[in-house]
Design a protein around this nucleic acid. Structure first.
Lengths: 146, 146
DNA sequence: GTGGGTGCAAAAGATTTGCAACCAG
DNA sequence: CTGGTTGCAAATCTTTTGCACCCAC
């Protein structure tokens, strides 16, 4: 399980005959700066890098997000209708779940041992090998309830 | 909470000044024939109706799926990367969760009171009004483990 | 008859890919 | 140097939409 710093990114890449490019570094560093609870879409990652005057094309952002997710540096989310999002896969930030406001998109995180247990049990019941489980709670936040 | 038969579909539609068309009937009937555990994408619904020689355009399938989900006849799922899927919203089949094989897409369902409780508790913690919660377990099925 | 619905084709997003130029190792 | 990577544009794929025609009520 890699920890998200440039050194381990470089090692992980080289292990696979891949290269550490400025673009890949920039994408991962953006997530690190933003911190653990930050959920970004490809478009947003690209926009934020452009705002920082860092040159990366949108196509490369898409390629890099998939790569970083495959390598375990990022976690892919399937929260809302508006496309895929990614967050930093931080060691002490794993196994958390999301409450999403269906009106404004505001998202809160929480942890729950009983949810983890339920997921593990369900996988075992069907003879599946568990990878990860995520609980998505759709709700309406206080503000949007008016 | 409507039960999924043509009568209540007709009533629900008329209540809103809408009309019961053959196309809408065909889409809902397809889900009813397939049963509760069936997860279909818009493309699949369209293809299956075409195979049955029932004329519905893909655009209408999309419009109808959204309508039936809004009306509560169908439940929208956010399981995999490959687009949205829908399933029948059956009364004695609510509040269930999914274990999905990330290799072959095979999907199993299960229920869990503790997951429901955890979702409700999380919503309350943040002062959100709960709508629904779903646990998605990503795993690898027995066959795909080789 | 009238307004909602449908089909079609075009439009709009989101994501992927082919390819020539580039550059990390 | 050399092969992996990038940027760009074109290609895909999914979903939505404008509009003329149609039909459920």
């Amino acid at each position: 399980m890699p920890s998200p710093d440039d050194g381990s990114l470089e090692d992980g890449l080289h292990q696979d005959g891949r290269r550490l490019t400025p673009q890949r570094k920039r994408v991962l560093e953006l997530f690190e700066r933003r911190g653990s609870g930050c959920h970004l879409s490809a478009e947003e990652v690209h926009q934020q890098l452009v705002d920082l005057k860092l040159k990366v094309s949108l196509a490369t952002v898409y390629r890099t997000l998939r790569l970083l997710a495959d390598m375990g540096f990022l976690q892919e989310l399937e929260l809302s209708e508006g496309g895929r999002r990614f967050e930093l896969a931080d060691d002490d930030h794993r196994d958390h779940h999301h409450v999403v406001c269906i009106r404004c998109g505001r998202t809160e995180e929480f942890e729950s041992d009983s949810v983890l247990a339920a997921g593990a049990e369900a996988a075992q019941t069907f003879n599946f090998k568990l990878i990860e489980s995520s609980l998505n709670v759709r709700a309406i936040c206080a503000d949007c309830q008016n």
